[in-house]
Amino acid sequence: MSATLNRVGLPRDAYKGAATTLCAGCGHNSITNHMIKALYELGIEPHLLAKMSGIGCSSKTPAYFVETAHGFNGVHGRMPSLTTGAQLANRQLIMLGVSGDGDTASIGLGQFMHMIRRNIDCTYIIEDNGTYGLTKGQFSATADLGSVQKKGAVNTFQPIDPCAVALALGCSFVARSFSGDGKQVVPLIKAAIAHRGTAVLDIISPCVTFNDHDGSTKSYSWVKDHEESIADVSFIPFFEEVHVDYEPGTVRDVTLHDGSHILLKKLGEDHDPNDRRAAMHVIEEGRAAGHLVTGLLYVDPDSDDFATTEHIPSTPLKDLAEGQLRLTQDEFAQFMSEFA
């Protein structure tokens, strides 16, 4: 049986990576599979993909998809700066960052925030399990107040909500999802990649070993019971035509700068994804009600990314030759004479 090829002529297997070394049942492995599906269906050319990560369980996962792409597993909490530099060096790269809650909300909070402020063109996925897995189960900064550790300790600190932080900083794309909800995660990953600017996607991803017990608010059962999706998300890439039948007023259509569409089908109350204050409100309401609100919270499809505001040419800076970088002999001589 021949495999179905995508628009760049690659089978789904071309998007696989090395075998995972994470625990069986880890939410991160589901996200890896969602990633493979999204990248395959989008027809991303592996050589243009740059997989970036920091340190932790989540940050290992770029090794587990698109093995032929370049990846960079840097230092803890500093993936945003590496991503910023790589993006500036070559604007043609598709920057895909994978981080965790410790990597993002604790050691890397500063870089996370400044990446958002600059609106670096990248997808930033947080595989959020509220715990430090590799170091055996300490609370992370996204753990909810009152949530209970495996050995019984109760978290006494307020959580840092990466989505609320991102919104406060004017992030141009903010979404939340659940690793077990592939129908929602896959279109959100696609939309995040298509979006020009920083796209933050906080995916609650249960840690089966250290944070999947009663009293945890990041367990499979808790999230399944408390997830409240604000809209059904579907993504139509620019190379496909939109032909969806829906009743007027039930679906919002967001057109991204590359011509792709995000279709949002109303579930309960209508949420306008272009309204940042409404997004904040939705998060706060959910929190007050003890729900986990998921879906596309906010998007500004017209935002300019950092390289654009910095006037960086589309030709990769790395490809500029001596002639485009050095002063000419005449310019050099003139310049030196000005020091005399």
Binding site: A86, H114, Q324
Partner: peptide
Amino acid sequence: TGEKRIAVVQAEDELAAVGMAIGASWAGA
């Protein structure tokens, strides 16, 4: 065009500054 054949970024701290430089070098700049 106003296009710049260089990116000079004032980073949030020295840690980010060197991170950006390393990321850029890794990507070939």
